[in-house]
Computed example of a mutant assay.
Amino acid sequence: MPYPIYQVDAFTDRLFGGNPAAVMPLESDLPDDTLLALAVENNLSETAFFTALPEGNDADFRIRWFTPGTEVPLCGHATLATAWVIFNRLDWPADSLRFQSKSGLLGVSRGKDGWLTLDFPNLPCEERPTPSAITEALESAPETAFFVPNDTNYMVVLADEAAVRAAEPDMRTLKSLGNQGLIITAPGQDCDFVSRYFAPGAGIDEDPVTGSIHSVLVPYWAERLGKTRFDARQVSRRGGRLRCELKGDRVAIAGQAVLYMEGNVYLP
């Protein structure tokens, strides 16, 4: 039986930039082990699966995200990619849509300039001593880190953009964090802040552009810089640009997307 599949580069305006995500529309739910097997076969940082919900629900679609190793509670770039597919391949008539997810209700709106804006939660973080797995894996790690309880991530703040770009964490040591990832960030040279993201325990050594970590980064930099609107860069090898805004208990995360491939998956 054929199932449609799309691959979209998210948070970029050029092919082979940003973060590639696989997107699969489903008419009904598939078993979790099948969803994980599909994510492994796709071998991308995330594969998004979505189903349409009946009218009268508080959302239009249900969405789930799988890495090659596990299901994750929140994913920005694959949500952006999914919205791009719905708007541009499934002829969605409105300029906004809503997803039901394990992180609550998520909205996406389409601007006149073609940018898509995610309505994501504001995820608070707690300051605590940096775990030994991080200090051993990353020579430049400070003594204090930030833990994100609702997203199982740690964040460390480095001195400057050069330190973020130069970081080469030991993935074998970081993997001992399990499904917890590591965000590194610093002030940017030609933007407000830069970041990178590593989650080898979840099957992702380095994620090219990670929308969901901006649910943590934006409130942190808002408090530090005393502003609410940001031009952000994720400075991985592929790289990506994001426009972000703090809106109380929500964070707006905007980006562009480019279609790379579409076809069918054949399941028995």
Rank of each mutant, 00 (worst) to 15 (best):
H214L: 15
W115N: 00
L53D: 12
Y197M: 13
P31E: 02
L35F: 06
H77R: 04
W65Y: 06
A145M: 07
E136V: 09
Q189A: 15
D170F: 03
S96Y: 12
S140Q: 14
T82G: 07
L225K: 08
P129R: 04
L118I: 13
Y154N: 02
R165H: 03
D13Y: 02
C244N: 10
G181K: 04
N42S: 11
Y6M: 00
A81K: 11
E143A: 15
P54R: 04
V157Q: 01
S132G: 04
E143V: 10
S140Y: 00
V164K: 01
T135E: 06
D170C: 08
F50A: 00
R172N: 04
P219D: 10
Q234Y: 13
L35G: 04
A162N: 08
D32I: 04
L90D: 03
A21Y: 09
T12V: 05
L44P: 07
P131I: 08
F11G: 02
Q7E: 08
L106K: 12
L217E: 05
M1R: 07
S101P: 07
M1G: 02
D32A: 15
V8G: 03
I183C: 04
I213S: 13
N19G: 11
S132K: 14
F99V: 12
R243K: 12
L225D: 02
A252K: 09
D32M: 06
M261Q: 11
S109P: 00
A252M: 12
V40E: 12
P121M: 01
P124G: 14
Q234I: 13
R14S: 13
P54D: 10
P129G: 05
V40G: 04
L30I: 07
P68Q: 05
L26H: 01
G203T: 07
P142T: 14
L158V: 02
Q100Y: 03
A59I: 10
Y154W: 13
P20M: 05
R196K: 09
G239H: 05
V23L: 02
P124L: 13
S215F: 01
I63N: 04
G248N: 09
V157M: 03
Y154E: 05
T210E: 11
A162P: 03
E46T: 01
P187I: 05
A137D: 10
L259P: 13
F49Y: 15
C191N: 03
P31F: 03
P2H: 13
W115K: 02
T51V: 08
A257G: 12
V235I: 15
T173D: 01
R98I: 13
